[in-house]
Design a protein around this nucleic acid. Sequence first.
DNA 1: GGATTGAGAGAGCAGTGCTCTCATAACCTT
DNA 2: AAGGTTATGAGAGCACTGCTCTCTCAATCC
Lengths: 239, 239
Amino acid sequence: MADVQDPQKPKTPRELARIRTIAQIVQLGREHLALHGAAALSLRAVARDLGVVSSAVYRYVESRDELLTLLLIDAYGELGDAVDAAVEPFPADDFRGRFAALAHAVREWAVREPSRYSLLFGSPVPGYQAPAERTTGPGTRVVTCLMGILDSAYRAGRLAAPDAAVVHPALAADFEAIRGGLDLAVPDALLARGALVWTSIFGAVSFEVFGQYGADTFSAPDELFQHHVDMLARVAGFD
Amino acid sequence: MADVQDPQKPKTPRELARIRTIAQIVQLGREHLALHGAAALSLRAVARDLGVVSSAVYRYVESRDELLTLLLIDAYGELGDAVDAAVEPFPADDFRGRFAALAHAVREWAVREPSRYSLLFGSPVPGYQAPAERTTGPGTRVVTCLMGILDSAYRAGRLAAPDAAVVHPALAADFEAIRGGLDLAVPDALLARGALVWTSIFGAVSFEVFGQYGADTFSAPDELFQHHVDMLARVAGFD
DNA sequence: GGATTGAGAGAGCAGTGCTCTCATAACCTT
DNA sequence: AAGGTTATGAGAGCACTGCTCTCTCAATCC
């Protein structure tokens, strides 16, 4: 039997049909997610839209949580693509520009896809725990990109020196692991600054998307975010 | 009939019993919320714990959303109390200390009550819209406290001057409204800095509570947050 | 004491996730 | 091409959800 793991699988028709059906389910799930939100995502409703009885869907998707995981990966991928596409046009040495592009790309995607952003960065769906081994890869694309920009700027000598604040020794090992994992050169203090900037971007986006600012507190959210990004670029140490 | 609005209502026994029952329902809801999370909050389960059939609960609580609103207000109140209690012991002119106390109080409450923190600052529960007129009051206690600290520091001349970044004119009206509403004196640029610090604190707390940092990326989350607060105090302009 | 009213029970509707069995059609092998 | 295998979908069913309705009864008020 030749069912050793050959990378070029011949794909029987049945396998192809299966893949197509799963893609349809994910697509429908994506629409339901965008329309009604994560917790309202119903396998039965997806089945109805697929023109099939609910139990049939379980042939393709193990459970509702499994579908959520698929949609999670799907959304992480799109966000990562959006960020990459926004950063790429800027010259490699325009660190500030790339940083600002990243931040605005995150925000724009979040505003465009609030339900999917909520799935990624909102409160965890109750009873659902994302399987780390399948989601950490796509889930770390944005922070990897951000840290890459910081690191390049540091290597180019274009990142302001760390301020007085000393990084607590208990964090040294963690930072060293991050540095190793992402192949970075930035010292601890700058890495900590990067982490703060990272959380701040998502804090600002989440406040806006989740409506924490209040109904009509800010009539010009674009300009508010722009200003935040300006300040964060300064915090990060760009030029 | 003397049912004009007299502030000292005599409280008939029935009214008292009703209030007691509602308090019991909220208490049970709080426990369910803490244990199983917001979306898993079930009126039927609360009814079971109350030793009563589900329809009976509807005599006291209009709907599941109504119960969520009660729990929302409840949680906002507790968070506000925690923050106030943490800030209060510091001398009125130790602005940096009060600021740090506020930040740590938020984080500690969030870590202690992740489900309730999620209800307040996580993705909105699907299909549920918090009634602004009942939640904005308790919901703004923390930011009011923060802005109060900033404002006091500013009035005392203990807040660093704003950096070069110019605040976009489109934001002027919004900032003016906030200033008026909270009776503040801080100029736009410092208010914007305050907003950034505010979102950054909650961004960092949310990342930690919602597990966005990754499973065991940081072995010393306390020290990481401490460092973030140090940096944010600098950003805010304390001393 | 009698009328009123509020509380709880119970049935019921429409929806959910998920499991099971059964028939059938598509597929692969000989 | 025939026959065995298997993936697929249907349907029933269980336990749960929110919520509505009606009915009964006891507590309260006058």
